[in-house]
Nucleic acid binder design. Structure first.
Lengths: 146, 146
DNA sequence: TATTGTTATACTCTATAACTATA
DNA sequence: TATAGTTATAGAGTATAACAATA
C-alpha cells in the first residue's frame, strides 16, 4: 500500500479536508424540506432508497440505534405514509420495510433543495476554484464510500 | 456574478459533492474521543477554540440553542473541567466563558483522531486521486466558510 | 435455546414559561 | 422598561430490561 499522506503538506490537506467536510456537512444538514422528520427518520428513508427494502433489525444496525428505537421510528414513518410494512417471505418473525412513492418524492425534493443551496454557495467561488472542485467531486465520493 | 454551475456537468458535480460531503461528515462525526460529551458540548468547545471566549448568550446564538439549554451545557462543561466562568468586566449580568487547558488538549486529541481516521481512509485512493483531492482541500474549506 | 421484534419504563437533550438581577 | 441569565417543567428521541412469537 502506498504511503501517500505522511508528508507535511498532505497532513495539512487532511486536516483542511476534515474541517471543511465537517462544517459543510453540518450546514447541509440544516437545509431541510420537512421539519417534521427527525434526522434518523430522514436517514432511514435514505438508507431504504439505497437498499430497496430492509428488516427493522437491519435498519437498526445500519443507523446505529437499538431495535426498540427502530420499532418506534418505523411506526412513525408508517403513520406518515412514508414506509410500507410487509410480512417477510421466509421468516414470520421478521418484516420487510420499504419506502412509498411519497417518500421517494420527498427525498427527491430534499436532494434538490440541498443541491440548490450548495450551488448557490458555489457562486462565491471563481471559475478556477470551481473547476478544481468539480474535478475533485468524484474522488471525494469514492473516498466517502471507502 | 458568473453563472458557473448551471450546466449539466456542474449540476452532477454539485450533487456528487453534496452526497459525498454529507456521508463523509456523518462518518467523521462518529470518530469521537470522548463519548461522554454531547455533540453540542463538543461544538461549544470548538466555537470557544475559534472565538477565545464568549458569553452564554453569544454561545446560544452561535449553536442555535435557547439560552436555558446553554446554561445547562455550560454548567456541565464546567463540572467536567473543560470551561472556566468569569464575571464580565463591563456588565455584571453577563459572564465570560472560556475553555481550559484540558479542553484544548481534548480538542487537539479529537482533531488528531479524526485526521488519522481520514488519512487511513485516503490510503484507499491512488496517487492521482489523492493529488486531486489535495488541490481541492483549500477550495472546499473556502466554500464551507462562504 | 436463540433470534426478531415489541412493550414498558427511564434517561438525555432541548424547549417554553416564569423568575431574578442588572442596565 | 429592556436585557442576561437561571429555575422549573414539558416534550422529543433514544436506551435498557422484560416479554411474545417464531426459528
Amino acid at each position: 500500500m502506498p504511503d501517500l499522506i505522511h508528508d507535511g503538506d498532505s497532513a495539512a490537506a487532511v486536516s483542511s479536508l476534515r474541517s471543511a467536510v465537517m462544517l459543510l456537512g453540518r450546514r447541509l444538514k440544516h437545509q431541510r424540506v420537512d421539519e417534521s422528520l427527525s434526522p434518523t427518520e430522514m436517514s432511514v428513508l435514505g438508507t431504504l432508497a439505497r437498499c430497496g427494502s430492509a428488516t427493522p433489525g437491519e435498519l437498526a444496525r445500519k443507523e446505529h440505534v437499538q431495535p426498540p428505537s427502530m420499532t418506534r421510528i418505523v411506526a412513525l414513518l408508517e403513520a406518515k405514509g412514508l414506509v410500507r410494512l410487509e410480512p417477510h417471505p421466509d421468516d414470520r418473525r421478521q418484516k420487510r420495510v420499504s419506502r412509498t412513492e411519497q417518500a421517494e418524492a420527498m427525498l427527491a425534493e430534499s436532494r434538490s433543495k440541498r443541491n440548490a443551496w450548495l450551488a448557490n454557495l458555489a457562486e462565491g467561488l471563481d471559475e478556477d476554484e470551481w473547476e478544481t472542485l468539480r474535478a475533485a467531486a468524484p474522488v471525494l465520493e469514492k473516498l466517502a464510500h471507502l
